[in-house]
């Protein structure tokens, strides 16, 4: 839960920057940051003001091999877009921010409807009964920056779950994408399975135990056959919360 009192928010932001928060709270903060400009400012305050503490460290000469690897992987990234271009992300981000769409579930529903309307016909989910819940997952980088909508999770009235990537995602050799859901902090994330190549999948109704508004869905980068621990071990690539689908008369 992100606190509202200024002092508590300063402490939360400070502990986030210091790296002292529990992983679950780090996720909460990273989930809140894209829509919470005030919290972003408080985090930036600590990031900038504490930086001189690192200023006294003696610089280390990097092994030339590091840049060689960066250059090699950069070529791969440029050849095969993993994540939408940051320029487009930023433009998208501004639109989303300025529209204030994160202010309410109805607005989010509208935004998702727009995204759905923009999808090519072949990507549109074939429904298993009307949509009961959907979660528009935001592309997420390791430090909590939002990079635009990247994934859609649809839960039909019969409990069928569909996973629909909005961008082409290539986890890389020996890696996989794993889908998780979280409805109880005490229990922690529950795996819904490793996603097949391409990421699009339809899961039978019994796979998802519980579904409710606000339930968290996330996709993490894991070893080829999924997390060996039963808990997410890699970075969160996409994250978002379930929203109840609204009925509209047209």
């Amino acid at each position: 839960m992100i606190p509202s009192a200024p002092n508590d928010r300063d402490i939360l932001a400070g502990e986030y920057v210091l790296g002292l928060l529990e992983p679950e709270v780090v996720r909460e903060v990273e989930l809140a940051l894209p829509a919470d400009g005030d919290l972003r400012r408080r985090v930036a305050f600590w990031e900038e003001r504490l930086l001189p503490l690192a200023g006294g460290l003696r610089p280390e000469t990097p092994d030339p091999e590091i840049w060689t690897r960066i250059e090699r992987d950069l070529a791969g990234l440029r050849a095969r877009r993993v994540i939408p271009s940051p320029i487009r992300e930023r433009a998208m981000y501004r639109v989303w921010r300025s529209a204030g769409v994160w202010q309410g579930a109805t607005a989010i529903a509208t935004a998702a409807a727009i995204v759905l309307a923009l999808l090519p016909g072949g990507l549109r989910p074939r429904t298993d009964g009307p949509t009961r819940f959907f979660a528009l997952l935001q592309t997420r980088d390791s430090s909590g920056a939002e990079a635009g909508p990247g994934w859609l999770i649809q839960v039909a009235t019969d409990g069928t779950v569909r996973s629909i990537p909005l961008a082409s995602v290539e986890p890389g050799q020996g890696r996989s994408l794993q889908l998780w859901t979280l409805w109880d902090q005490a229990r922690g994330p529950v795996s819904l399975g490793v996603l097949p190549p391409g990421g699009s999948v339809r899961l039978p109704p019994d796979r998802l135990g519980v579904i409710g508004s606000g339930q968290l869905f996330e996709i993490t980068l894991e070893p080829e056959y999924g997390s060996p621990t039963g808990r997410p071990t890699g970075r969160v690539l996409f994250i978002g919360r379930a929203n109840a689908s609204t009925t509209q008369s047209l």
């Binding site: 900038e48 690897r69 990234l77 487009r88 992300e89 990079a147």
Partner: peptide, 26 residues
């Protein structure tokens, strides 16, 4: 290595009004 790929991927999301680039990278 991972951080510089991150910096490359996320350069467009950097907001100079929010803070200094060096602090962002660090």
């Amino acid at each position: 290595h991972d951080s510089f790929l991150d910096i490359w991927e996320r350069a467009g999301t950097f907001d100079r009004e929010r803070g200094a680039a060096r602090a962002w990278m660090a």
